[in-house]
Computed example of a mutant assay.
Amino acid sequence: MEHLKQFFADKKVESILDVGTGTGDFIAVLKEVVPGASLTGVDPNKESLLEATQTFPDVKFKEMYGEKLDFADNTFDVASISMALHHLPDISKTLGEMKRIVKPGGWIIVNELFSDNLNSAQEVHKAMHHFRSKIDRLNGVSHNETFEKSQILQFVEDAGFEIRLHFENRKAAKQLSAEDIQERSKKLTEMLEQVNHKPEYLDLKREAEQITIALKIHGFEMATRLVIVAAVNKTQLS
């Protein structure tokens, strides 16, 4: 995330809120980008927050939904959301809440995988993500399929933010061993068993088999992520 480091090198950032923090994966990035800033992470999942607290005991974590952030207006210098847009029931409302709690002249950071212009190994990752999203939705969990890059940019612009920087972040491909393929195939089976009583089960079983074949042929590579830094314009805040 060298681009982020360079962007914030001359910015005064004392407080950051990470929305949809999960187990705190993006907290580690934020610590590198803005060392010394006070960090708070929020997420509705108690188990994820417990793991995050154990990993980052110096960070404040609170159980909270992005659509209703329990913080006063103009509290943080920066608000971030990483790999969580596709989990939101209401993206516009969450981005609006992030705008509300960021101080005038502050920033938001969005880090989100996207679905277009992927290679064959990345298409396997997308297929696995879409498979999981179907399972989650059948179980009543909010989980959208991967957005296109242009959609993510549009979400941010529609929320009234001024995009100042965006770039693609791609992790190097990893050669999968037979054990890696077996483990990922096992995860597909475990997800599938969550809906073995649903009428969609047989179709999803066939889909899981096709993904396993694709894993063996193409391997696996994380889909490219789009990173956005945008300015908070309070004059547009409704």
Rank of each mutant, 00 (worst) to 15 (best):
V141M: 14
E97F: 01
E190P: 07
D43S: 03
V124C: 06
A37Y: 03
L204D: 05
S82R: 05
L215Q: 04
T75C: 09
Y65M: 14
G219F: 03
A178L: 14
F7A: 11
G66S: 07
L49V: 09
T75R: 11
E32H: 14
Q154L: 14
N144Y: 12
I91M: 07
S82G: 06
D158H: 14
P89W: 05
T94Y: 01
L95K: 00
I109Y: 02
T94N: 02
L153T: 10
G160T: 06
T23I: 09
D90I: 05
A214P: 06
E221D: 09
E190C: 11
A79I: 01
E14I: 00
E148T: 13
L153N: 10
A72H: 06
I213P: 10
L176H: 11
P89T: 05
S238V: 04
F26S: 02
Q194E: 13
I163F: 12
E97G: 00
V227R: 06
P199C: 06
L30Q: 04
L188S: 04
K99P: 00
N74I: 04
K11R: 06
E179L: 14
V78Y: 01
L50G: 14
K68Y: 07
E193P: 14
K186C: 15
A9K: 13
I163N: 03
S177T: 11
P35E: 14
L4P: 06
Q175R: 15
L4N: 02
L17Q: 00
G219L: 02
V42M: 08
R100N: 04
S120E: 15
F26G: 00
M98R: 01
L165F: 12
V110T: 03
L39S: 05
L204G: 10
A121R: 08
E97L: 04
H218E: 11
L95M: 05
E200D: 10
I135V: 09
E209I: 06
P35K: 04
R137Y: 14
D116H: 01
Q151C: 10
A173I: 12
T23H: 04
E47P: 04
S115M: 01
V110C: 03
A172N: 14
G22T: 02
A208K: 02
N233P: 03
L88E: 01
Q210H: 06
R100E: 01
A173Y: 09
E67V: 03
E162F: 09
M83I: 03
S185W: 11
L165G: 15
K174T: 14
I81N: 00
I101D: 02
L204K: 12
D10K: 12
N144G: 11
S177M: 06
D73G: 08
A214R: 09
K187H: 12
G96N: 01
F220R: 06
V195F: 08
A178K: 15
K62H: 10
H197Y: 15
G140Q: 07
N196I: 05
R164T: 10
V59H: 07
L138G: 15
V141C: 07
Q236C: 13
L204S: 08
R184V: 07
A231N: 04
F147M: 13
N144H: 14
T189F: 12
N139C: 10
F155D: 05
